[in-house]
Design a protein around this nucleic acid. Structure first.
Length: 213
DNA sequence: AAAAGTATCAACCGCCTCGTA
DNA sequence: CTACGAGGCGGTTGATACTTT
């Protein structure tokens, strides 16, 4: 049997359509079988990635909001580079998107915060809020992440307004709604609830929040 | 206006885990 | 129990867009 050479690189619109049709019929499992039977000259892995990161329903394309950014920061502080785990807490966002966003936006922000934290001109009270009063020690990906003294106890979303201010973030109307909505949750529920797009109708996530702007 | 530098993000790679035969 | 394949995950790459010089 001659192997069909698999395509790589950016997906064409036509391929997206084929993939979406195949998933509609076969479901989003058994990617290798789906890739073959759909006629796509793509690997199952490639199909899965395209579907998960771009085509599947309820994905929220576009800018990460300040509130989402805040959640990313907090969860990264708590869990490190567990992007898929973090993504499950952000409706409509993918692990890849969060990973990219963190690397391109937040890491930089963190480094500048560290620099500020370690600078000799930094006022004493701010430094004391950073931690023990001594310069930040940042050794790995988790380093930047601002310890719990800034962000508040890691299990408590609602005590993080201070960190939000320190990072110079602002809230959009959506973010305000989301914050208000999240504030109605008991803290445990926030961390225990995971977004599952298969189960949107039963999910605690309220997708109507996204549509208000 | 053009070249160089930087940022962004889609997609790939390779490893790991888990289910199944 | 073991081997194997599929899926999931995090790290990395490379093309393109954007910004700076």
């Amino acid at each position: 049997m001659q192997e069909v050479e698999l395509r790589k690189g950016p997906w064409l619109e036509e391929e997206d359509e084929k993939l979406a049709s195949a998933v509609a019929v076969l479901g989003d499992r058994r990617w290798d079988a789906l890739a073959k039977s759909s006629g796509l000259r793509r690997s199952g892995k490639s199909c899965r990635l395209r579907w998960m990161n771009y085509l599947r329903p309820n994905l929220k394309h576009g800018n990460i909001s300040a509130e989402e950014e805040r959640v990313i920061i907090e969860l990264h502080t708590k869990w490190g580079n567990k992007w898929s785990r973090i993504a499950r807490k952000l409706p409509g966002r993918t692990d890849n998107e969060i990973k990219n966003y963190y690397r391109s936006h937040l890491k930089k922000k963190a480094l500048s915060l560290e620099k500020e934290c370690n600078s000799s001109t930094m006022n004493t009270s701010l430094r004391s809020e950073c931690g023990t009063g001594s310069p930040c020690s940042i050794n790995d990906d988790r380093r930047f992440l601002i310890n719990d003294d800034i962000l508040g106890p890691s299990d408590d979303y609602y005590s993080s307004d201070h960190a939000f201010e320190m990072l110079s973030l602002t809230r959009s109307p959506y973010e305000t709604r989301l914050t208000e909505w999240m504030s109605t949750w008991p803290p445990d529920e926030l961390y225990n609830q995971e977004w599952n797009y298969d189960d949107c109708s039963n999910s605690v996530w309220d997708f109507s929040l996204w549509d208000g702007e």
